[in-house]
Design a binder for these strands. Sequence first.
DNA 1: ACCTGAACACCGTTCAAGT
DNA 2: ACCTGAACACCGTTCAAGT
Lengths: 227, 227
Amino acid sequence: MSPHTPAGRARRRVGRPTSRVLSRRMIIETGLRLLDEQGTEGAGMRAIAKELGVQPSALYNHVAGHAELMAGVRELLGERIPVDMFAERPWEEALAEWATLYRSAFAAHPATIALLAVLPLAEDTALTGMYDTVVGTLVRAGCREDRAVSVVVALESFILGSALDLIAADDMLDPGPRDDVPAFSSAYRARAERLAETGQRPADASFEIGLRAMIAGFGAEFGAGPA
Amino acid sequence: MSPHTPAGRARRRVGRPTSRVLSRRMIIETGLRLLDEQGTEGAGMRAIAKELGVQPSALYNHVAGHAELMAGVRELLGERIPVDMFAERPWEEALAEWATLYRSAFAAHPATIALLAVLPLAEDTALTGMYDTVVGTLVRAGCREDRAVSVVVALESFILGSALDLIAADDMLDPGPRDDVPAFSSAYRARAERLAETGQRPADASFEIGLRAMIAGFGAEFGAGPA
DNA sequence: ACCTGAACACCGTTCAAGT
DNA sequence: ACCTGAACACCGTTCAAGT
């Protein structure tokens, strides 16, 4: 039995290949695709290498390691968040839409949320352009300049926390039949009925309610002018 | 050289020990302690077992696995969040203090944040009592009953997201000397100056600003009465 | 019931060898 | 410069054997 190459791909000999077989971009995109298709477990260095038809060690010529690779995935997702709405609509509406799309960018890739939420954003990133747009809008809306960055970070914290909530089970908080927490049991049932009527997911309802409250709160602050 | 036991502890023979050497509680508390002392990497099954002077496999008599163990750690931290303030103070103040202590409970154990943020809360947990108190307060303050649970979840999302922000580097967003993002650069500098004056950490400033906005927003909603 | 000890099936990462 | 192939130093988890 002569050695056969799996999946019909010609086996490479040792030594430098005649043409580049890998690139940083290919690796990161494959990482994101495996994350989507297989979940967190299926997107390790070995799995990505296998998908690309190379040895795991080959990846290290293009990425520093698994953590840096995942940071690349996060940036890839971040770049897809649009900011056009800030030029076109009142700041409250634009901010709400931006936050919703921001959360959706992660929500579309559930397996990434847990992985990416805990990663710091890279320093010099394309996301800085997004911050510039949002911060500029806030200041023009009446936000104190020395508070604008904190406002954006607070919103991002809420967005990320809400994305994490999205991967939790819908019935996670269900108190069940216990009768020692009456206020919670009653409110839980009331919410369940309401959600059943509207067909909304619990995590979506919480996100919407929290987002509206934050934006309303910021609006009151901006309107009040400089303290 | 006869085999010596390390650290002066008598080596156990094989077979069931005469008295219990482990308990679920011991294991979870050791997990939290190692998380604090050594960080995420130092709190694996093997490290916890070593710290307790047992073989890794012994842990599986008391916990289902590493994930379930970490869920226990999270519950341990959650139980330490006090709720007395709701009985004593106006709801806005109580809610703000609760949220701050909630975040501090995680902030006191930085290595846990990334690990615990992505874990769903256990279903039947002591935390349900906390939810009961908070939800009851919100409803009495004028919150619609079918929205109260979502309000609490939204707050928790913000709290967790803010805790994650706490483990990011303080200068993470620094745009540096680039001149293509003027609004952001200017606002970033203004914030840096303000923080230098007050000595506040960036993550703390964002948390405070976001928390006040959310609570103000909820207050406006509650005051408006049922829609 | 609850431990030890050995083994299994994985990881990410390093590095010499090869072109 | 950029790949292969082998090795290193880990993981979490399973399970038979032992008391």
